[in-house]
Nucleic acid binder design. Structure first.
Lengths: 156, 156
DNA sequence: ACTTGCCCTAGAGTGTTGTCGAGGGTTTAT
DNA sequence: ATAAACCCTCGACAACACTCTAGGGCAAGT
């Protein structure tokens, strides 16, 4: 049993365009063509494509995925190479995860302020500080004046 | 005390080009200019810039960061908006983290195979299976023949 | 006055990853 | 044999996030 490019697109949630693009980029040298020149994907091909999407989803560049795939095509002699490539990528992922987590913590800190009961006071105070700093440095103040909270002004 | 664009670039590890690009994209409406038209960053500006890099580092698009910054400029009335923006982004980050972790597990699985003592056998078997599958489907075999491991062939 | 080293803008160029249209062949059903 | 629904390549286009160049202004030191 083999799969047409359309079937593979549906299975993998990659577009047909993307699959062809990947092939053009040398990511799919293992996909054979039938006598009409159509791509026919085998199950083993899907396995490899799955590995490719794993690498892509974790942020590996297409050029680096190609390097890995090229090693796969060569055969078992390249196992040490593949090992190194994946191990290095693994470390890159972990480093990126750590970075994102650190940034996430800061976003959570901001969210906590916004969720605090005194949020409006805190934010207003920060704004006042920023405005004062501009003034102290003789710089134009980019912050617009706040509309006055004129409660129930309906004279006449 | 204020900071020149060069000083900010060094502090933030963003290039001067990037800072100007961000300004052009509307990410830095809070940065004032001095009488010569030069940008002067205050400490409060650096705080906001830091928030921007947090959002950028966690994958937020520039257009969305701009939306957030625009809300900040308006004032405390937009606290609910900012809350929603950050909360949604927070969820997007967590979803992405989960996806990456799932993919990382698969990469680790591959790495374990490569690190196994029987790695060469396993890989060779997989390769043989892939080749057989091509054959069974009357497709050309894209895998090259492996060089024979001719041990010590030095006749004459 | 002149050099050096900053700063500015506008707009062109780059790298990456797709996305699509044109033009054309194949397969299947009617 | 003709239509519908596939498939192909090639090359243009696009979105995104920079990166740089050209041309010019400003500020400090010699």
């Amino acid at each position: 049993m083999t799969y047409s490019i359309k079937a593979v697109a549906e299975k993998t949630h990659l577009s047909i365009y993307t699959l062809r693009f990947y092939d053009k980029q040398g990511l799919l040298p293992f996909v054979s063509r039938n006598q009409s020149g159509y791509r026919e994907f085998t199950d083993a091909d899907l396995q490899l494509l799955h590995t490719i999407t794993c690498l892509k989803n974790t942020g590996m560049k297409i050029a680096d995925i190609r390097t890995y795939i090229e090693a796969v095509m060569v055969g078992p002699s390249t196992i040490p190479t593949r090992q190194q490539l994946l191990a290095a990528h693994r470390e890159a992922i972990l480093a990126e995860q750590r970075k994102i987590l650190a940034n996430l913590k800061e976003i959570d800190f901001k969210l906590n302020i916004y969720n605090a009961p005194k949020a409006a006071q805190i934010i207003t105070a920060e704004r006042q500080y920023a405005k004062a700093e501009k003034l102290a440095n003789q710089l134009p103040d980019p912050y617009p004046e706040l509309p006055v909270a004129s409660e129930k002004v309906h004279r006449d």
